[in-house]
């Protein structure tokens, strides 16, 4: 259970409509999801991410029209957990493939083929290998979707009118309200110092 919950931690955390553990910030509007800032250039965004992390914020997210290499590390994402899922999928698939054949040819329907032993493990290897690849591949795709939280038909940032530009030529930085460091007014003013062209609240 604890392994599973850790695996899916990133997925489970952003529960919509439920603001996370929030420090007493005085005048928090009731349904605030976070504060978002819009930047015109990728360098400004990367710089802003560094500044935000330096300020002590941890629960932040960035949105860009294309992948920016430095961003992954700057934002503080650890190594992906997909490889572990692929490994588990591969091992499960290998065991499944082998014992499927073992069970059919030794337990369920033993058949004498040219005097070979029922457990002809050598001839089981190709199917075992194929099942390993198949399960690992499925684990990779499903694991990626689950860890990404996809499919996700709605997300609070969609309520920001200009957010659609994140898939064109604008770069966005979001600080989530459940960040322990988050204070509605302070965070808003801090983000205005980062060189953003626009800062706005994100409603849940």
């Amino acid at each position: 259970m604890s392994v599973l919950s850790r695996l899916f931690a990133r997925h489970v955390k952003p529960e919509f409509g439920k603001p996370g553990p929030r420090q007493e910030g005085g005048d928090l509007p009731p349904h605030l999801y976070g504060v978002i800032a819009e930047f015109g250039k990728p360098e400004t965004l990367v710089h802003a991410v560094h500044a935000t992390r330096k300020e002590g914020y941890q629960v932040i997210e960035a949105y860009t029209p294309y992948p920016i290499e430095e961003l992954h590390d700057a934002i503080g994402h650890g190594p992906s957990r997909v490889p572990l899922l692929v490994l588990i999928g591969g091992i499960v698939g290998g065991l499944f493939g082998f014992f499927l054949q073992y069970w059919t040819s030794v337990v369920a329907y033993p058949l004498n083929v040219g005097g070979r032993p029922y457990n002809s493990w050598v001839s089981f290897i190709p199917i075992t290998f194929e099942c390993t690849i198949l399960f690992a591949g499925i684990a990779a795709v499903l694991g990626m979707l689950v860890l990404n939280g996809l499919p996700m038909p709605y997300h609070p940032v969609f309520s920001v009118p200009r957010f659609q530009l994140a898939s064109r030529d604008r770069y966005f930085l979001l600080i989530l309200a459940r960040d322990p460091r988050f204070r509605a007014g302070d965070t808003f003013r801090f983000m205005e110092t980062l060189g953003a062209s626009l800062v706005s609240d994100v409603e849940d």
């Binding site: 040219g114 070979r116 050598v122 001839s123 290897i125 190709p126």
Partner: peptide, 8 residues
């Protein structure tokens, strides 16, 4: 190995 072993 597989081919030779299967053929026997």
């Amino acid at each position: 190995f597989l081919i030779i072993w299967s053929g026997n």
